[in-house]
Nucleic acid binder design. Structure first.
Length: 264
DNA sequence: AGTACCACCTGACGGC
DNA sequence: TGCCGTCAGGTGGTAC
């Protein structure tokens, strides 16, 4: 579930487990996931080096190598990190396995090979090349309003547009809309500045809450939609039932009875 | 400028 | 049990 909260949790996990340790060996199981970098470069940059810091921007994680370059990780739809000692605990579908001199390992695993990793020289240029907007958590209310002002189309689509603001995906955009009682097909032009301000607050609230709970939906507050992404289940806060609809090509989950605010 | 698809890739699940 | 269609949290490209 790698949207901003998940990647933030991975960042903290990497910080807590894998910094300042010498890398002994790197195994690349899915060379297709290495983008824009020669396999030999990836191996050479990491072997004998170590991670000394991390950064996150939207759904992208950057692990700073002590030589000054960065390992970039993107998790696609299914990627995750796992740190372990016993190779029996090596997760299935590990696509990149980093073994440290201390005998522990950090694995990037992803059943669907939709993520990527690469080596870059510096982060800002990469963010620019990817045309990523500001990280959602760096936005203040005024910046948020100005990004949306004059934009046509649906709010959900805008929240998920990584070039507008980076970090929100399908699940968390649904959650934000649910928290403010707006239907997933609500168009921006129908929203007052006041309502958009509420959307901004919900955005931060939802992301903070998700990170606090380790991005584990089962741990989320009782009135959150995310653990109930199943058509026909009871809405956690009204008598309605959750339904699945298509919005700009993605499955959007919502409660038609309590997500009916006009917005203006 | 926005939207609707398709592609990438592979597993899980329900229906027959 | 096996096959098949559908769906799943990602991005990127193309055609209206």
């Amino acid at each position: 579930m790698p949207e901003l909260p998940d990647v933030e949790v991975y960042k903290r996990y990497l910080d807590a487990t894998s910094l300042h340790q010498e890398i002994q060996e790197v195994e690349i199981r899915a060379s297709k996931l290495v983008k824009g970098t020669a396999l030999s470069t990836l191996r050479e940059e990491l072997t004998g080096a170590g991670f000394e810091r991390t950064r996150r921007h939207g759904k992208w994680l950057f692990a700073g190598i002590n030589s000054g370059t960065w390992l970039v990780l993107h998790f696609g739809m299914t990627g995750e990190l796992k740190y372990f000692q016993d190779l029996d605990d090596d997760p299935a579908y590990d696509q990149l396995l980093i073994s440290f001199v201390n005998g522990c390992h950090l694995a990037y695993s992803a059943p669907r090979k939709l993520g990527e990793f690469r080596i870059i020289q510096e982060v800002e240029g990469f963010l620019h090349a990817k045309e990523l907007g500001p990280d959602v958590m760096d936005l203040d209310r005024n910046e948020f309003l100005s990004l949306l002002s004059g934009r046509r189309g649906m709010l959900k689509t805008a929240l998920m547009d990584q070039s507008l603001m980076a970090g929100i995906g399908n699940v968390y955009s649904d959650e934000v809309l649910y928290q403010v009682g707006l239907h997933p097909r609500t168009e921006i032009k129908h929203l007052t500045e006041e309502v958009l301000g509420e959307v901004f607050s919900a955005l931060h609230e939802v992301v903070d809450t998700a990170v606090e709970h380790g991005a584990e939906p089962e741990e989320f507050p009782a009135d959150y939609l995310t653990p109930h992404r199943q058509p026909g289940t009871d809405c956690p806060r009204c008598e309605g039932q959750i339904e699945r609809i298509k919005v700009s090509g993605r499955s959007a989950y919502c409660c038609p009875s309590c997500q009916d605010r006009p917005g203006s």
